[in-house]
């Protein structure tokens, strides 16, 4: 029982960064029907910027700088990649964003001083609480709070503001974009900028959780975040949050229960990847619209 509760708590906290990144992925998909493989690098680049800024600036200010850089990168990708390729096949756009990610990682290694580990101190140090021998750091609580905050803000934005409603309408009916009076370009910038913000927040917080390397968010979170987005229905913001939590739970359960089965522990290293792969294929084959189906 203790084990069960600990696994669930751990899963929830594992899932928060996936959900945060998945929100950015879903936003971009809603706005421009693009699978944005650079979403993770919005995070790592922000983390690097914060890390460098931290040489001179206090950690909170440095984190802010990092997030601003994340936003700038989101806007830059919109301007120089997404916009010129707006009419290209979606697979081309996917390859282009993947290339941006590759380029960003290579640049971090090549210009950022090599592939070694770096540490960016957590915004709040220490453990928040301990459940059944599992310690939860303040930084993880912070990720969870950030997730809650941004989920709430996005909800308010899309349900209460004219601009948000317009973006929502446009995502459901692309032709409507111009009808509601906000330009396609402005909307596209807005969406990518918000994705940059979400990626930046994820990266800066995630970098405080453990020592990080170039491309860390892409390597550690991106695939899980994508699967979370798909599980949630790809166009649903609440779906992304739920999907992230589901992924966190799948990961914590397969890590703490599947590995207790001796055959699995003996023969299948990193079994959570198998669980995630099976989940992804099952969702796509059986329920392609995800848990929360259509636009929300």
């Amino acid at each position: 029982m203790d084990q069960l509760i600990a696994t669930i708590v751990l899963g929830l906290f594992f899932g928060a960064p996936y959900a945060l990144l998945a929100l950015g992925i879903v936003l971009v998909y809603k706005g421009s029907r693009v699978f944005n493989f650079a979403q993770g690098e919005f995070g790592t680049v922000a983390a690097f910027a914060a890390y460098i800024a931290n040489f001179w600036l206090p950690v909170l200010v440095a984190a802010l700088v990092g997030i601003l850089v994340g936003i700038a990168m989101g806007l830059g990708v919109e301007r120089f990649v997404a916009r010129p390729l707006a009419n290209a096949p979606k697979v081309i756009m996917l390859v282009a964003t993947a290339a941006v990610a590759t380029g960003a990682i290579a640049l971090q290694v090549g210009a950022g001083g090599g592939p070694q580990l770096r540490t960016f101190e957590p915004l709040v140090a220490g453990n928040a609480f301990v459940v059944f021998n599992v310690a939860i750091e303040w930084q993880r609580v912070l990720v969870m709070l950030a997730l809650g905050l941004f989920a709430l803000l996005l909800y308010l934005f899309f349900s209460r503001t004219d601009l948000g409603l317009a973006v929502m309408a446009a995502s459901q009916e692309p032709v409507a974009t111009d009808l509601v009076g906000i330009g396609t370009r402005r909307m596209s910038s807005l969406v990518w900028g918000m994705a940059g913000l979400l990626g930046g927040v994820t990266g800066v917080l995630f970098a405080g959780l453990q020592p990080f390397t170039p491309g860390v968010v892409t390597q550690s979170l991106l695939v899980f975040a994508f699967v979370a987005a798909v599980v949630g229905g790809m166009t649903s913001l609440p779906g992304a949050v739920i999907g992230g939590v589901v992924l966190g739970l799948v990961q914590s359960f397969s890590a703490s229960y599947l590995t207790r089965v001796e055959v699995v522990a003996e023969n299948l290293p990193n079994v959570e990847w198998l669980a995630v792969f099976v989940l992804l294929v099952a969702v796509l084959a059986l329920r392609p619209s995800g848990l929360l189906g259509k636009e929300a």
């Binding site: 699978f35 979606k90 798909v230 990847w273 792969f277 294929v281 796509l284």
Partner: peptide, 26 residues
Amino acid sequence: RIKGLYLALVTLAYGRLAQETLFNLP
């Protein structure tokens, strides 16, 4: 059964699965 961008995602997850699990099999 699974097409386009979603297939890309499945192959991505497969690549990671291979790297993390298959290639570390006993």
